[in-house]
Design a binder for these strands. Structure first.
Lengths: 156, 156
DNA sequence: TGTTGAATGTAGCAAAGGCAACACTTCACA
DNA sequence: TGTGAAGTGTTGCCTTTGCTACATTCAACA
């Protein structure tokens, strides 16, 4: 319980100088994009399923107040991911659709991967919601490799 | 490229009502705790390695300005995770040490897991930095199971 | 055609997490 | 023993992401 009491901690790995700072910077920026990606993903889903994406529905799916959703939608517009005109619903630009497709695929892969690992379905959904924003292409590929492997019977 | 063009997307999975909102709320709160966990983890590491944790070192490891670090350290104090007196360095409370130990173990497990999956070391470090904050106990256990399995030769 | 309830939008507030600029302490060493 | 560089702390500013409260618009239906 004191600073020196690290008995159970396999100590050795030495710290890198700027690399660590870079890693944290990268994690911070992923954190910042996460909300944007969530919005875009939900808007795409609403458009595909319902034919329209209204601020109130978006807010409800995210569990935030509608005013919050409207403010964020304004940012999406500013950043060229969405288009929207007063009282006319929200739409995605090409860039928005690209991001949505990417995130949807990513989400499905992460969920499938966690399920294959034996994580309970409800937990897998929750964790995937957070993890999907931090999975690089290389790691996503590793997940897919694992899934392909597990699919073809494997050994066991 | 249009809303209806979802040819490559395996559509079906229906949306849950409030469950989805709860999932996003949970992801948001994990995002909010992530920074705190990073600070605590780094402070613990500095204390163990150097015997002291100075604001400038913490800031350097995180890649932020020292003023930012000092402000966040004040929050850690306010929240009962750290203790610090002017010009005297930063220390962790018992609660801080608990969190630090938990995050360190979590970090190591996630990195080891990604490596075992075949993710390159540098990428594993970056991704782990983001993923570790979103891995539930159940998923962490699944990672450990996989590692134990992989360790004993497995069959495959 | 009015009217009214739901949806939408706006304004103002707060906290978190960044930053740069400036002021104050410490401490090593000349 | 001074002193100056490095470290520390403070201030003021910005953006994001929440919220509530209030105003406006839309649309359904009496």
């Amino acid at each position: 319980m004191t600073p020196q009491d690290n008995t159970a901690l396999p100590d050795p790995p030495p710290p890198a100088p700027d690399e660590e700072a870079a890693r944290h910077a990268s994690a911070r920026s992923a954190r910042a994009s996460a909300l944007t990606e969530d919005y875009v993903e939900i808007i795409a889903d609403l458009l595909e399923r319902e034919g329209e994406a209204r601020p109130t529905d978006i807010a409800r799916r995210l569990g935030v107040a509608h005013a919050t959703a409207i403010k964020t939608i304004a940012r999406l517009k500013r950043d060229g991911l969405a288009r929207a005109r007063p009282y006319r619903g929200v739409f995605l630009t090409d860039r928005g659709w690209d991001m949505a497709r990417k995130m949807k695929a990513r989400h499905q892969t992460v969920v499938a991967f966690l399920l294959a690992l034996g994580v309970p379905a409800d937990v897998a959904e929750v964790d995937a919601e957070g993890i999907e924003h931090h999975v690089s292409d290389a790691t996503l590929a590793a997940f897919e490799r694992f899934l392909a492997h597990a699919a073809q019977g494997d050994g066991r």
